[in-house]
């Protein structure tokens, strides 16, 4: 069992899984609490359209993925803020439009390009040291900002209007949050793919939500669950020759249902006087 842990590619995969699992779960706490679940899906698919365009025109994929991801996150945020459109509607439109763009760009390619599909489903076992370093640096930046401004982000997640009224520049923090979501999605895209990144944003925080009645403990639990299920998923997939992404998602889903079943929140409590 321990022998295969000496394999370089597997070590990198485990570190990548821990980093993306922890990073997505940390930002995912605010995604879940602020009701931005589909921002993750919309941003991930918009970023994938950016990757497809980059491969079509021969440009580096990450910058274009970031432009598409940030553009989608900011425009949907603006539409929601100005009350022009409900978030689920605008995200639904961007989700389908950017997927249509991605399919269009892939269709315009002269030859089949397997690398593009790697961004849809992820390729965690082929992560390079350079990709790992970039992921680590951006994870440090995102988690650092979330930690430093945690009091503002938690207030925003609980009640944005009250935060603004109490002297917190909540609108700026809302757009900073959208920016950090977009960066997280783009950073995680190569490693876990557009589909799995959405699962990691949602499932570990939703599991933690079941287990605690404290904001700070929810963050702690979500990051721990995200890191552990991601590492366990990689090890299981290697041991039993399973696809890594589905192994992580299904394991996280199993833990989520266990948490729902044993959640202390659903136990009857005596009323407080």
């Amino acid at each position: 069992m321990v022998d295969f842990l000496t394999l370089g590619f597997l070590q990198r995969a485990i570190v990548a899984a821990a980093l993306t699992g922890g990073l997505c779960s940390a930002i995912g706490v605010f995604v879940v609490l602020r009701g931005l679940a589909f921002i993750g899906a919309g941003t991930a698919h918009a970023a994938f359209a950016g990757v497809a365009l980059a491969y079509l025109i021969g440009a580096p994929p990450m910058p274009l993925a970031l432009v598409f991801g940030l553009g989608t996150a900011w425009i949907t945020g603006l539409l929601e803020e100005r009350g022009r459109m409900k978030l689920d509607v605008s995200i639904g439109i961007f989700y389908t439009a950017t997927m249509a763009l991605a399919i269009l760009f892939i269709g315009m390619m002269k030859t089949y390009n397997a690398e593009v599909y790697g961004y849809l489903f992820g390729s965690i076992l082929s992560v390079t040291s350079e990709e790992l370093q970039m992921t680590g640096a951006l994870a440090f930046l995102v988690v650092g900002l979330l930690g430093f401004f945690s009091k503002e982000f938690f207030f925003l997640a609980f009640d944005q209007e009250m935060a603004e009224a109490s002297g917190v520049p909540a609108r700026r923090f809302f757009f900073l949050l959208l920016t950090l979501i977009a960066i997280t999605v783009v950073v995680s895209l190569k490693i876990v793919g557009a589909i799995l990144v959405f699962a990691l944003l949602l499932i570990p925080p939703a599991t933690a939500y079941q287990l605690t009645s404290s904001l700070r403990r929810m963050m702690l639990y979500a990051v721990s669950i995200g890191v552990l299920v991601s590492i366990a998923g990689v090890l299981l997939s290697f041991q039993f020759d399973l696809p890594t992404g589905p192994a992580i998602v299904l394991l996280a889903t199993g833990v989520f249902f266990l948490a729902v079943a044993f959640s202390p929140k659903h136990r009857p409590k005596p009323a407080l006087s």
Binding site: L33, K151, E152, F158, M162, S166, G167, S214, R216, M218
Partner: peptide, 25 residues
């Protein structure tokens, strides 16, 4: 009723605007 926030955490939010961006509680 299931939002994960304690009474203490809710009241501490009142301090966020007072102490400003660069200070931790």
């Amino acid at each position: 009723p299931y939002f994960p926030i304690t009474v203490h955490e809710a009241v501490m939010m009142g301090r966020a605007g007072v102490i400003g961006l660069w200070r931790r509680t």
